[in-house]
Amino acid sequence: MAYSDKVIDHYNNPRNVGALDKSSETVGTGLVGAPECGDVMRLQIRVNPETQVIEEAKFKTFGCGSAIASSSLATEWVKGKTVSEALEIKNTDIVRELALPPVKIHCSVLAEDAIRAAIGDWKKKNGVEETATVAAH
């Protein structure tokens, strides 16, 4: 199976690899895994408390090229969005952008889960209602 050029680009030049301070009030951390293939993905966001805009996003993924590309793209997309805008990102958007084949769709699902988990963690830390993430599943 051949990877698309976009997957290869994100794989070779992943954006926003790294870590944010997990204990900070303004940072949300999402750690998710795909039991099917053993991938594990950590996505972190730093949210501006005034505007609820995601100012910084970092990820670290252990897994296949599609999983790395999906999470790399996810960090690019959430940056500059408000928390509620970021929740609008769907795995199908990632599939389309990266032209993922059917067997790799779960990588995009994982990235969407990671965004939701990171936002969920931030909301929990800051006492924000979590209705949006629950309803989505």
Binding site: C37, H106, V109, D113
Partner: peptide, 18 residues
């Protein structure tokens, strides 16, 4: 189970424990 069947069930109900 296995990669071929992935995505058939939404991964959220199959998340490994934290």
């Amino acid at each position: 189970v296995g990669e071929q069947n992935a995505g058939r069930n939404k991964s959220a109900d199959r998340q490994p424990p934290a």
